[in-house]
């Protein structure tokens, strides 16, 4: 009995750590109270060097350039906190940036309760609520380019992808990625595994190792923090990876050849400006695709070793043009 209880307690400890993200200092209090207050509410936690950090960069930039002050409200993937954090954020700020498809229900409810607050909702589409602007990214378009790049780089004719969860947003990446690869090479094999977790690098590594062992030599990670495990696996196996959301090349420029950038921070920043200038169309969805430069590929900085040749870049630009023109129609999972 005693022994069993001890084992259980260990499990409780382990379970509680699962919901523990890492945390950085979040409050950036300004001196004047007349500054516009912005709240950033995220479904996960900061420190993913990806999606949420990108959003954080956006508000940080707004603080530098526009002199706003802001606070970050992290939910650490705890569904029971979505409502509470959004309420607290709404009580604090006049503009609330909400990042994560998970807020779909609560943001609609809460936005109605705080009509004087503007909500910028990223990662899902909601129309018809006056004080709610949603930003939707054409992940499939960006991923199309990533797929095309992977197909150009592979020597084994097999490429891979590690998805965070088998959910619509991630599948939208997946269909674009596959279509892009097939556009370059009809017979290419694409191996995809979903890690079922956005916060666990160990799982990401496991998935990536499995995909590499099936013959792939380049993997597109779409798994937030979990993706860091993909980079690690790539390093150990001497293979390559493509980053996501932000330009992740800096994490390890020797294995990360490029990143599919979703300019979350930039779009939040742009929207804050529009709200301040009263240029916003109420209750609308703003689309950020290749055309709007909301998604794209990032190749890191010039001092890094470049794997993508100028020829490849030219070819990718060409594809991008064709997508913008509508000559190539990218499939969507929505």
């Amino acid at each position: 009995m005693k022994r069993k209880v001890a084992i259980l307690l260990v499990f409780i400890l382990m379970a509680s750590t699962i919901f523990t993200g890492c945390s950085s200092s979040k409050t950036q209090n300004g001196d004047s109270s007349e500054k516009t207050k912005v709240a950033l509410v995220i479904a996960g936690g900061l420190g993913d060097r990806s999606f949420y950090d990108s959003a954080h960069e956006g508000v940080e930039k707004a603080k530098q350039d526009l002199g706003i002050e802001y606070k970050v409200y992290e939910c650490r993937n705890d569904a029971s906190l979505y409502n509470d954090q959004l309420v607290q954020a709404s009580q604090y700020a006049s503009i609330v940036a909400v990042v994560g498809y998970e807020f779909y229900d609560v943001v609609q409810e809460i936005a109605k309760e705080f009509p004087e607050v503007y909500y910028i909702y990223v990662d899902n589409e909601i129309e018809g609520i006056d004080n709610l602007i949603t930003i939707s990214y054409a992940e499939n378009e960006g991923s199309f380019l990533a797929g095309a790049l992977a197909a150009m780089l592979t020597k084994t004719n097999t490429i891979g992808m590690v998805g965070g969860m088998d959910i619509p947003v991630i599948r939208n990446f997946q269909v674009g990625y596959e279509a892009g690869a097939k556009y370059i090479n009809k017979d290419i094999k694409v191996e995809t595994i979903f890690a079922e977790d956005f916060e666990d690098p160990a799982k990401g590594k496991e998935c990536a190792t499995a995909i590499y062992s099936r013959g792939a030599d380049i993997i597109f990670q779409v798994a937030g923090k979990t993706g860091e495990g993909v980079f690690e696996a790539a390093k150990e196996q001497g293979k390559y990876a493509i980053g996501v959301d932000t330009d992740q090349r800096y994490i390890n420029p020797d294995v990360i050849v490029a990143s599919m950038v979703k300019k979350v921070g930039q779009s939040i920043y742009d929207t804050i400006i529009k709200i301040q200038n009263n240029e916003i169309e109420k209750g609308k969805v703003i689309y950020y695709g290749l055309k709007e430069d909301g998604v794209g590929l990032g190749y890191g900085t010039d001092d890094m070793k470049q794997f993508v040749t100028d020829d490849m870049k030219a070819k990718l630009d060409e594809i991008k043009e064709m997508i913008v023109n509508g000559e190539i129609e990218v499939p969507t999972a929505k």
Binding site: V5, L8, A15, S16, D105, I167
Partner: peptide, 23 residues
Amino acid sequence: GVHYRFLQSISPGYAWDGMLASL
């Protein structure tokens, strides 16, 4: 009462905290 639908990660480990309460 809370989500009005089933969500993929509906519990942040309630059962573990419940077990802790019980212990």
